[in-house]
Every structure is written in structure tokens, then in C-alpha cells.
């Protein structure tokens, strides 16, 4: 059980973190200003989100919360990007 919890958190850190970073990059494309600028801001923020996600994945009280805390914001950010693009 302990091993499963750790594996789940590692997964959240690496995969969930990348999902959040991607979502941050997508969400930022909805920023005002030129597209090229927004894209670059999004990626630079995305790395910070990734590192923060890694810490969150191990700081969260349970593995479920770790995943939820990443996927939730990621979904919102991706939605913002998608609405901005369409």
C-alpha cells in the first residue's frame, strides 16, 4: 500500500506535473498581446508550474488529493486556452 502511494505520487509529480505545465502554456495563449509573446510567457510559467507541481505531489495529504490538485487547475487552464483559441 505504501509502495502504491509512492508510485502514485511519483506519477502525479512527473505526468500530472507535465499536464499542469502544458495546461499553463495553453492557458497563457489567451493572454492579451501578440500570440508570439503569449506563447513564450506560457512556456516560461509552465516550468515553474511543473516544479511547484512536483512539490505539491509529495506535500499533499494523500495521493488522491495530489492528483486532484493538479488535474483540476490543469483542466481549468486548458479550457481557458481552448476558449481563447476558438
Amino acid at each position: 500500500m505504501k509502495a502504491l502511494d509512492i508510485a502514485s505520487r511519483v506519477g502525479a509529480a512527473v505526468v500530472g506535473g507535465y499536464a499542469l505545465a502544458t495546461a499553463a502554456a495553453l492557458g497563457a495563449t489567451a493572454l492579451p498581446g501578440t500570440r508570439a509573446e503569449a506563447v513564450q510567457i506560457g512556456i516560461m510559467l509552465g516550468f515553474l508550474a511543473y516544479a511547484a507541481a512536483m512539490i505539491w505531489a509529495f506535500a499533499a495529504r494523500s495521493a488522491i488529493r495530489a492528483w486532484a490538485g493538479l488535474i483540476g487547475p490543469a483542466a481549468v487552464l486548458a479550457l481557458i486556452g481552448w476558449i481563447g483559441a476558438s
Partner: peptide, 27 residues
């Protein structure tokens, strides 16, 4: 940051509808 367009290219694909060359030229 030096390899950022390799690591997180998905914002480019969304904003430029997959045309990465257009992004590189515009930036």
C-alpha cells in the same frame, strides 16, 4: 528556457494551429 520550445511546444500548436514555423518567424 534554452530548450523550452522542445519541452513545451503545445502552446505554439494551439495559438498557431500547428504551424510552428509561423511562430518562429513571428518571434
Amino acid at each position: 528556457v534554452t530548450l523550452m520550445f522542445l519541452y513545451l511546444p503545445w502552446g505554439i500548436d494551439l495559438a498557431y494551429r500547428g504551424d510552428r514555423a509561423a511562430f518562429y518567424a513571428e518571434a
